[in-house]
Computed example of a mutant assay.
Amino acid sequence: MSTGFSFQCQAYCCDTHARAGVFTTPHGPVETPRFMPVGTLANVKTVTPDQLRAAGAQMVLANTYHLHLQPGEAIVARAGGLHRFMAWNGPILTDSGGFQVFSLSELRQISDEGVTFRSPKDGQIIRLTPERSIEIQNALGADVIMAFDECPPYPANREEVMEATDRTYRWLKRCIVAHQRIDQALFGIVQGGVYPDLRQDAARMLADLDLPGYAIGGVSVGEPAELIKQIVKVTAPILPSEKPRYLMGVGTYREMVQAIAAGIDLFDCVIPTRLARHANALVRGDRWNLRNARFREDFTSLDKDCPCYTCQNFTRAYLSHLLRSQELLGYTLLSIHNITELVRFTQNIRSAILRGTFKAEFGHWL
């Protein structure tokens, strides 16, 4: 049993399954719904921990697969765990490495025992099992760790998805046995592809295991947006209402609103920093390419209503100049704004749920 964790709902939407809550962890609370920035290699690209906090981030992600390859979990453990290693004193979540391993379709072999793959870094043969994934995550020391799962590709036929979903459940039970730390919460992952009945069956089976939290995985892997909406809509309400629900790999405005309406609490996505590296700013739901000519002599702030460091100090013209010149500061400033934008978006949704105005304010996204 994990200690130091709890989830409390503070308000519900009377028209949808949306809820506002607080997920308490050993490293502090996470107010939900909440967007979580991705820090794959124990850093959110181009952004310092202080800048992350100023952007409103409460919980960040790191990646088991990548950290195992470099620098190795033993080094992170000797540094005092991820929190000390990356100088982030807030909650951290690590994924299991499953999604990354399964994306190496030409480099890996899957069996009931686990996955064998060739490292794209140095060609070394690596074997990752549910037990090994948990062992690595125990060493990394994140607050929330994810069960090792098989993420079927899109499109995949029903038989392939059934096999992957059944294997994910068997692996979850092995993860539970292998998990050694009570200061880490192990979340299970619902798979099932685009098949509603498989998703619902998987959700019911996972709910019976009484885990500290639950995730919906295997979405946003190439399927149409309408299918993502339907998958989440039929799956999320089945998961225990007294536990946090996490939708993996989703961070667009419409998809987050639709998922929150279905009862989702937590989100992660690489969108804010990836877009920044391609000179794209998120502004009130739109994406602006700041290399466009119209910004070269635009001396207004990116968004006059945004409280972030970037918007409070710099103009669109200056950002355009930095990005056209490929100056690293440009990527940092744009990442700060994009992260702030997505965190504020989920904060505004939370406030609307607390006021009882979620449907009125965000219904146009549904």
Rank of each mutant, 00 (worst) to 15 (best):
R158P: 03
L354F: 12
Y309P: 07
S103Q: 04
L323H: 05
A79C: 10
F35K: 02
I336N: 10
I353N: 05
L128T: 01
I228T: 10
R355I: 00
H27T: 02
E135H: 05
R296Y: 00
C269W: 11
Q8F: 10
K173F: 03
G97L: 01
L282K: 11
G98V: 05
R284C: 13
F295A: 05
I336T: 07
I349W: 08
C306A: 09
I126N: 02
R316V: 03
T40W: 05
I216L: 14
W288R: 04
P26G: 05
V144E: 00
Q58G: 10
D112V: 02
R316F: 09
T168K: 01
V101F: 01
N348M: 03
A276T: 09
A203H: 02
R108M: 15
R118K: 11
V257K: 07
V221A: 05
N89S: 12
L211P: 14
G141E: 09
G72D: 11
R108S: 15
Y169Q: 06
A281E: 05
T64C: 08
A185G: 14
G363A: 02
M59C: 14
A87I: 01
S351N: 12
S103P: 13
P29E: 15
N292C: 14
V221M: 06
C175E: 04
A20M: 02
I145V: 15
L323C: 13
D208G: 02
R245D: 11
R245Q: 08
D265M: 06
E160W: 01
S320L: 13
H83D: 08
Y253T: 12
M1H: 15
H68T: 09
V161L: 04
Q8E: 14
T16Y: 05
R284S: 13
H83W: 09
S119A: 01
A279W: 01
V177Y: 02
S351Y: 15
A164C: 10
S6D: 12
A225I: 11
C175P: 00
L41W: 01
R170E: 10
A276W: 13
A360V: 11
V22N: 09
F102W: 01
W171Q: 08
P130H: 00
F362D: 00
L198N: 02
P153Q: 08
F99I: 06
A74L: 03
T357M: 06
V232L: 06
V38R: 03
L247D: 10
T310Y: 15
P33N: 09
G263V: 03
L333G: 10
F267W: 06
